[in-house]
Design a protein around this nucleic acid. Structure first.
Length: 171
DNA sequence: CCCTGATTCGC
DNA sequence: GCGAATCAGG
């Protein structure tokens, strides 16, 4: 994958919106954050030096061992969402995921972040909090209810259901 | 440890 | 031009 016009345009947009290089790399796909940063600098739209004063850098030796090819490197890891996906994709009444904001481009599986939450979206948390795998179920919740039907059942297990044999249904 | 952007330089 | 390796921080 190379830098076609659309990808460069998206890069500019996201960069100007303050997204980090790794986040942009995830959105674009097929590139590492290093590639994004390199492109940003080549385009001359670097947010200007915030860290290193960039003085004389001796740059010790040539970094890469030439015989070896580049390491696989981290493929923009996504958190463990196995369980979460199970819950997400097998609700009893499949809640249609929230629509979309107008021009916002979300090549990744669009996720319900805090930005997309409304009065009637399920706030059941999924993914690892603090990471960008974290999002919300986003299913349709009934008025006054913070969760969709499926997650509400998990959240509010009635006492009479908690019999001895009751299968553990949470998380 | 995780992350951020910045820089160098072989390709 | 591209981006991995590395650096310099938070």
């Amino acid at each position: 994958m190379s830098w076609n016009d659309e990808r460069v345009e998206l890069l500019k947009k996201l960069w100007s919106e303050g997204l980090s290089a790794s986040q942009i790399a995830s959105e674009l796909g097929e590139v590492t954050r290093n590639a994004v940063i390199g492109k940003v600098h080549r385009l001359g739209l670097s947010g200007r030096a915030k860290t290193a004063p960039a003085p004389t850098r001796p740059r010790a030796k040539t970094g890469r061992p030439e015989g070896q090819e580049a390491r696989p490197q981290r493929p923009a890891t996504i958190g463990n969402t196995a369980l979460a996906q199970d819950l997400e994709e097998a609700p009893e009444e499949a809640p249609a995921p929230a629509p979309q904001v107008t021009d916002n481009v979300l090549p990744m599986a669009q996720r319900c972040t805090i930005m997309n939450l409304t009065e009637s979206t399920c706030r059941w948390p999924l993914g690892e909090p603090g990471t960008d795998s974290f999002h919300f179920c986003g299913g349709k919740s009934n008025p006054g209810m913070p969760y969709c039907a499926a997650h509400a059942r998990i959240a509010y297990q009635p006492v009479q259901d908690r019999r001895r044999d009751r299968r553990l249904a949470y998380l």
